Amino acid sequence: HNLTITQGKLFFHYNPKLCLSEIHKMEEVSGTKGRQERNDIALKTNGDQASCENELLKFSYIRTSFDKILLRWEPYWPPDFRDLLGFMLFYKEAPYQNVTEFDGQDACGSNSWTVVDIDPPLRSNDPKSQNHPGWLMRGLKPWTQYAIFVKTLVTFSDERRTYGAKSDIIYVQTDATNPSVPLDPISVSNSSSQIILKWKPPSDPNGNITHYLVFWERQAEDSELFELDYCLKGLKLPSRTWSPPFESEDSQKHNQSEYEDSAGECCSCPKTDSQILKELEESSFRKTFEDYLHNVVFVPRKTSSGTGAEDPRPSRKRRSLGDVGNVTVAVPTVAAFPNTSSTSVPTSPEEHRPFEKVVNKESLVISGLRHFTGYRIELQACNQDTPEERCSVAAYVSARTMPEAKADDIVGPVTHEIFENNVVHLMWQEPKEPNGLIVLYEVSYRRYGDEELHLCVSRKHFALERGCRLRGLSPGNYSVRIRATSLAGNGSWTEPTYFYVTDYLDVPSNIA
Rank of each mutant, 00 (worst) to 15 (best):
N206F: 11
G207I: 02
I209N: 13
F215A: 13
F215R: 09
E217I: 02
R218Q: 15
Q219Y: 09
A220I: 10
E221K: 08
D222K: 06
S223R: 10
S223F: 03
E224L: 05
E224N: 08
L225I: 08
F226C: 06
E227W: 13
L228C: 15
L228P: 08
L228A: 02
L228E: 15
L228Y: 15
Y230F: 09
Y230W: 15
Y230C: 15
C231F: 01
C231T: 02
G234T: 05
L235Y: 10
S239T: 10
P244L: 11
F246V: 08
Q252S: 12
Q252W: 09
Q252G: 11
K253S: 05
H254E: 07
N255L: 04
S257I: 13
E258W: 15
E260L: 07
D261G: 04
D261P: 10
D261S: 08
A263C: 09
G264R: 12
C266V: 15
S268E: 14
C269R: 12
C269A: 06
C269V: 08
C269W: 13
K271D: 14
K271F: 13
T272K: 05
T272P: 06
S274W: 12
Q275I: 13
Q275F: 07
I276R: 06
I276M: 09
I276W: 05
K278T: 14
E279C: 00
E279D: 12
E281W: 02
E281H: 15
E282C: 04
E282R: 13
S283N: 04
S284H: 09
S284L: 06
S284D: 11
R286V: 09
R286S: 10
T288F: 04
D291L: 08
D291Q: 06
V296S: 09
F298M: 14
F298G: 11
K302C: 05
K302P: 13
T303E: 14
S305T: 15
G306L: 07
G308C: 14
E310S: 06
S315C: 10
R318W: 15
R318G: 09
R319D: 06
R319Q: 05
S320C: 10
L321F: 14
L321Y: 09
D323I: 13
V324W: 05
V327Y: 11
V329P: 12
V331M: 13
V331N: 12
T333D: 12
F337A: 15
P338W: 13
N339Y: 08
N339T: 12
T340S: 11
S341P: 06
S341K: 09
S341L: 13
S342F: 05
T343L: 13
S344H: 13
S344D: 05
V345Q: 10
P346S: 14
S348R: 14
E350Q: 11
E350G: 07
H352N: 15
P354D: 11
F355Y: 08
N360C: 14
K361N: 10
E362N: 06
S363E: 13
L364M: 11
V365T: 06
I366R: 02
S367Q: 10
H371S: 10
F372G: 10
F372Q: 04
T373V: 04
Y375C: 02
I377W: 12
I377L: 13
L379W: 04
Q380C: 04
Q380V: 03
A381M: 01
N383W: 01
T386E: 09
P387G: 15
E388I: 15
E388Y: 14
E388S: 05
E389R: 11
R390V: 03
C391R: 03
S392G: 01
S392M: 01
V393H: 09
A394C: 06
Y396D: 02
V397P: 14
S398Q: 04
S398V: 14
A399H: 09
R400N: 10
T401K: 00
T401G: 00
P403V: 04
A405V: 13
A405F: 11
K406P: 12
K406H: 09
A407R: 11
A407P: 04
D408G: 02
D409K: 09
I410L: 09
G412Q: 05
P413M: 13
V414W: 02
H416V: 07
I418F: 07
N421D: 14
N421S: 08
N422G: 14
V424Q: 02
V424N: 00
V424P: 03
V424R: 01
H425M: 12
H425Q: 08
Q429T: 05
K432D: 11
K432F: 09
E433W: 11
P434C: 08
N435G: 02
L440P: 00
E442I: 11
V443G: 01
S444L: 05
Y445M: 14
Y445A: 14
R447K: 03
Y448M: 07
Y448R: 15
Y448G: 00
G449R: 11
G449I: 14
E451K: 03
E452P: 01
E452K: 11
L453S: 09
L453A: 11
L455S: 08
C456P: 02
V457I: 11
S458M: 12
K460R: 12
F462N: 01
F462G: 03
F462P: 02
F462D: 02
R469E: 12
L470Q: 01
R471K: 05
G472E: 04
S474K: 05
P475W: 12
G476P: 01
G476L: 00
G476W: 00
G476M: 00
G476F: 00
N477T: 04
N477M: 08
V480Q: 10
I482C: 03
I482G: 01
A484R: 00
A484N: 00
T494V: 01
T494A: 11
E495R: 06
P496C: 07
T497V: 10
T497K: 07
Y498S: 06
Y498A: 11
V501S: 03
T502C: 08
T502E: 04
D503F: 09
D503G: 03
D506M: 11
D506L: 05
V507T: 12
P508L: 09
S509N: 09
